[in-house]
Amino acid sequence: MGHSQAARAASRERVLQVTARRIREEGLTRPGVADLMKEAGLTHGGFYKHFTSRDDLITQAAALALEEGSAKMERAARTNEQAPRTGLIDSYLAKQHRDAPGTGCALVTLGAAAGRGDQGLKEAYERQVRTYLDLIAGLDDGSEGARAEAMLTLSALVGAMLMARAVADPALSDQLLTTVADRLKQRQSHDSAPAA
């Protein structure tokens, strides 16, 4: 790849990264092209060298935002080697995750938009849901029961984080995170307890 092609690819990647962060923070409708290009250190006029339209950029950035979560979820599961699901729960429902939506899980911020979005966004969202379900079920034995528990766990994680970010009362926000985390971990310890 020549220097100009490499520079163009690097510029395009910067715009995608900036946009992925901003849509996690603000949703799909807020960031304007001029602001995104400026934040990426580029001029508004260069936008069409990289993307066919704002919708094209948003769709690609949303897919990137969703994909970036996989590595974070895998790292979270490795924070507690004895109980990987506990590590995942604790990392996901942490106050730091709540307070940093720009680097957080895009399932939370893009759920409603994906539900109303085009087929490409729905497919990207579904891919990420399936990836997370596989990861969570794989922390157990991967059986049908583990898959059902993974669905419950993922739904509780995403729902708790969404509500914790949305409520005005900081105490309720903290309580949503800690209560859901505690209940999910209790379910896990109950499910993994040996039969008498």
Rank of each mutant, 00 (worst) to 15 (best):
H3S: 15
S4Y: 14
Q5M: 15
Q5V: 14
Q5A: 14
A7D: 12
A10Y: 10
S11C: 07
R12L: 07
Q17G: 02
T19I: 04
R24S: 04
E26I: 00
G32C: 06
L36V: 08
M37W: 06
E39I: 03
E39L: 12
E39C: 04
G45Y: 05
F47I: 01
K49F: 11
H50C: 00
F51Y: 00
F51Q: 00
T52I: 14
Q60C: 06
A63E: 07
A65C: 05
S70D: 13
S70C: 11
M73L: 12
A76E: 13
R78A: 14
R85T: 09
T86Y: 08
T86G: 05
I89F: 05
I89M: 08
S91M: 11
S91D: 02
Y92T: 12
K95F: 13
P101C: 02
P101K: 01
P101T: 04
G104K: 01
L107C: 02
V108N: 06
V108R: 01
L110P: 00
A114E: 04
R116A: 14
E123Y: 08
Y125W: 04
E126Y: 10
R130E: 15
L133A: 10
L133P: 02
D134N: 13
G138L: 10
G138M: 08
D141C: 06
G145K: 10
A146M: 03
R147I: 15
M151R: 09
L152D: 10
T153S: 10
L154V: 03
L157N: 07
G159M: 05
G159P: 00
M163N: 09
V167L: 10
V167C: 05
P170T: 13
L172G: 08
Q175V: 00
L176S: 09
L176N: 00
R183N: 08
L184G: 05
S189G: 03
P194E: 08
A195H: 13
A195W: 10
A196T: 08
